[in-house]
Design a protein around this nucleic acid. Structure first.
Lengths: 127, 127
DNA sequence: TATATATGCAAGTATTTACTTGCGCAAATT
DNA sequence: AATTTGCGCAAGTAAATACTTGCATATATA
């Protein structure tokens, strides 16, 4: 029950994303969070524990309460991962756009055969 | 085995992230992907199925092969979710910065008691 | 001090994962 | 026509998840 535990896995659960949304606004205690959900306090507590393990939040004791504070900077890992593809995608969009525009200018002339292009099957069975 | 299935869950698995990384570069067939991993072809195939269900990739048949093509735009959902917090975090960083700077200018004078600040416990037990 | 409150810990359960192995089939290759 | 190749389907398994209920404990509060 403690093998993989990274930020990606942490935000995979919708309840945990909702929790992040709550504590991102303001630091609140465990019960206040639990009240917002239909699941038991224990279940929420476990989610908080997971989030804390992933360093997505900070729990500090204040009397009998435990205040949960978001550590949004830990989402950077996800941000960077997604961003590389986001950029790649936008790049391709504009590339496609200019391709189409160029195609409109010189129709049917020097178009190469890019039909069997995607076929990069590994014929070499090296296993 | 088909309850929750969203993009966040899809990218939670490191193998699936690796697969996305592979097909983002170029469209390749199932076996070529499977060869890159230590797990069985079936396991990879299942990951691909999950990714396809989440619309993160397109599988099209070409003869006896199945070409997997990335649909990076589907990562937008994740991008947007993370980005809101990314922005929020950066915002707070600069807010903190200007606070510190202001603090340095007028030391100890009008500093409010922001010690018991975080304590917004819901005293009203409405359940 | 007795009681209510905030919360953790432990044990137990139903589902879901992530895999595996074995089989089958259709499209290429020989 | 026979064989190889690419890949899905199905059944089975081990481990992880997401929860629950019950109990314990420390801190406020009446």
């Amino acid at each position: 029950m403690e093998t993989r535990r990274d930020v990606f896995q942490a935000i995979a659960d919708p309840t945990r994303r909702a929790i992040i949304g709550m504590i991102a606004k303001q630091t609140i205690n465990v019960n206040s969070i639990a009240e917002q959900f239909d699941i038991s306090r224990q279940a929420v507590s476990l989610h908080l524990k997971i989030l804390a393990e992933c360093d997505l939040l900070n729990i500090r004791q204040l009397g009998r309460e435990r205040l949960c504070e978001a550590k949004l900077e830990k989402l950077n890992e996800v941000h960077e991962w997604v961003d590389q593809y986001h950029k790649l995608w936008k790049e391709r969009l504009s590339a496609l756009k200019s391709f189409v525009e160029q195609e409109e200018l010189q129709p049917k002339s020097t178009k190469k055969t890019n039909k069997k292009n995607a076929n990069n099957t590994n014929k070499s069975k090296r296993k």
